[in-house]
């Protein structure tokens, strides 16, 4: 059974041409019939199949639709058109600071993060020691989070997300946490994930990281799948394209000056 399947998926955001934020304004505009919308297609007719156990890198420049893709799979967003099927429990590798509260202790934050991931308090208490040990925060776990460094907070978030044992792990550029030694530990854990037959989706700008972790890569451009295949081919193509566009842009501005 496929782990993730996208069939002709489009996501269209409807953006008012002038941002109408207030009810008063809306009421006025509504009566004068001046509410004009633009459609922004974040994804267009995307087809994608990912088998269980695959580690797939998603590359593409900012605004290409990578995060929208991840949100669809995480069921945060429902597609405007098409169909998304996901088999297994997904867990995002939480972005820095999400749901972490400075006034709460590390321990309290772990329980809260676990609840955000859909776990009960009892389940999280069982996992707590292991999470704290992996994050190497034993001494600080009862200190308020506001005393943590960014790296420490990120380590804790990573430990929670990977300890909850999802079938599909969604990673959105969050691997660059902590020092080199911790990075290595993260890599090991991803490796263990893969060996256990779990699916990993890695969205990243760091092509080296994608090559290191994935065998397959998908390049998203302008809301479409530009390329899908062997990680080296795809990242190479994307890299070439990036360099060319950058050079062209430099030439254009250079010519203008």
């Amino acid at each position: 059974m496929t782990a993730i399947r996208l069939e002709n998926v489009s996501v269209r955001y409807r953006i008012p041409r002038e941002r109408i934020k207030t009810l008063k304004e809306y009421a006025i505009r509504h009566f004068t019939k001046r509410v004009v919308y633009d459609d922004f297609e974040a994804l267009r007719e995307v087809n994608l199949e990912i088998e269980p156990g695959e580690t797939v890198g998603i590359v593409g420049r900012n605004g290409a639709g990578k995060s929208t893709l991840l949100r669809l799979i995480a069921r945060i967003l429902r597609p405007t058109e098409g169909r998304v099927v996901v088999v297994g429990k997904t867990a995002p590798l939480l972005e820095l600071g999400l749901g972490l509260h400075g006034e709460l202790t590390g321990r309290e934050n772990v329980l809260l993060q676990g609840a955000l991931l859909g776990f009960t308090r009892a389940e999280m208490k069982r996992r707590l020691d292991r999470i704290v040990a992996f994050a190497e925060l034993e001494e600080f776990i009862d200190a308020p989070m506001r005393t943590y460094s960014t790296g420490m907070a990120a380590r804790l978030a990573f430990s929670v997300a990977t300890d909850v044992d999802p079938d599909i792990l969604l990673v959105d550029e969050a691997l660059a946490v902590g020092d080199e030694r911790f990075q290595l530990k993260c890599h090991d854990r991803m490796e263990a994930f893969r060996r256990a037959g779990k699916t990993v989706l890695l969205v990243s700008h760091a092509l080296a990281q994608v090559r290191q972790n994935c065998r397959r890569a998908v390049w998203i451009h302008g809301g479409r799948v530009a390329r899908d295949g062997d990680v080296h081919e795809v990242t190479e193509a994307y890299h070439l394209w990036s360099v060319e566009t950058a050079l062209a842009a430099a030439a254009a501005t250079g010519g203008g000056a």
Binding site: M1, P52, G82, V84, V85, K89, G197
Partner: peptide, 19 residues
């Protein structure tokens, strides 16, 4: 054939946006 190699788990939660 790849699915046959892996232990098939039927207890996995399925999310289907169309359903």
């Amino acid at each position: 054939s790849s699915t046959a190699a892996l232990p098939t788990r039927t207890d996995l939660p399925v999310y289907d946006s169309a359903r």
